[in-house]
């Protein structure tokens, strides 16, 4: 028989040597931002909270590479330190929603009875709530800061992962190799966690990468409207918010830099995520 079968590849091997130059560029940008933020205490030229009222709203110079804000604080140092909080939030949300989403998706996809159906409806229900609205609700309950938005965002992003995982599990469950495991007498938890789960990780990983960008932008927006990270902690969204006064006075740079960084990171993460899901999707179809 001449059956042309395109083999679906599963497992981490799908990631191997599959990035385009564009994705490599995006990866470089993301890596640079992460490293600069991570080593901010060592690399940053100034204390991010050091106020120098003799030197406010200065343009870029040898002393202050990106200039200073309305309180004379060094913008580069604030950006680098701000990255620590701005990147930490999405990281926790993505890890949390991926783990929770995978587990719920596995359960929903594997159980043929009412449990799967109920979970599916719950995911639908969660989809209906905008993530930002849930975050504001959580802030109203738990107060401002990082904790409430992260908790709310984690829950809001669970259905994106769970829905995907569920559909993958349903497809995987009917495959002969999974049925062979059943006939061979392997226990369901072993098959699901040990054999099926690893085959889902590349596809789910691509989705979670995309989620990272969205969460970053959402959290920055929360900080911008003053509900997220509170001053004086530096945060990209908060930095934009603090610069509103300067912006009205005609000083663009204090708001421009953090906005630029947010856009760069979101775009970079999206490029990487799209690339991964394209490659994996292409190989699956």
């Amino acid at each position: 028989m001449t059956l042309a079968i395109q083999l679906p590849q599963t497992g981490l091997r799908r990631y191997g040597s599959l990035l385009s130059p564009m994705a490599w560029g995006a990866l470089a940008v993301a890596a640079a931002v992460v490293l600069l933020s991570l080593f901010a205490p060592v690399l940053a030229p100034y204390d991010p909270d050091y106020v120098d009222l003799n030197n406010v709203l200065a343009g870029p110079s040898g002393q202050h590479l990106l200039g200073t804000d309305a309180l004379g604080r060094d913008l580069l140092s604030r950006l680098m330190h701000g990255g620590r909080t701005s990147l930490l939030g999405p990281t926790i949300v993505v890890i949390g929603s991926t783990v929770l989403g995978l587990l719920l998706g596995l359960v929903a996809g594997w159980s043929e009875g009412w449990l799967g159906k109920v979970l599916g409806r719950v995911f639908d229900l969660l989809f209906a709530f905008p993530a930002l609205l849930m975050a504001m609700l959580a802030i109203a309950l738990f107060g401002k800061g990082l904790f409430a938005p992260i908790l709310a965002m984690t829950i809001a992003y669970v259905p994106y992962v769970a829905r995907l995982a569920q559909s993958l599990v349903v497809a995987e469950r009917s495959r002969p190799y999974v049925q062979a495991y059943r006939v061979l007498g392997f226990r369901t938890p072993w098959v699901v966690l040990g054999r099926v789960l690893p085959n889902l990780i590349p596809t789910v990983g691509a989705q979670s990468t995309l989620n990272f960008g969205y969460v970053l932008a959402d959290l920055a927006a929360l900080s911008f409207i003053g509900l997220g990270v509170q001053p004086p902690t530096s945060d990209w969204g908060a930095m934009i918010e603090e610069s509103r006064g300067a912006l009205l006075g005609g000083y663009i740079l204090p708001a421009f830099w953090p906005a630029l960084v947010v856009v760069m990171v979101v775009v970079a993460v999206n490029v990487i995520g799209e690339e991964l899901s394209d490659r994996i999707g292409g190989k699956l179809s």
Binding site: I5, T10, G11, R13, Y177, A180, V183, R187
Partner: peptide, 27 residues
């Protein structure tokens, strides 16, 4: 039940049609 399945596995086994799908691709 899982225990019954394990006992049955020693009595009867199956080989499926499609050799491309009946093995776990990752293992």
């Amino acid at each position: 039940r899982a225990s019954e399945r394990k006992v049955l596995a020693k009595e009867v086994q199956i080989v499926f049609q499609d050799p491309y799908l009946s093995l776990d691709p990752r293992i």
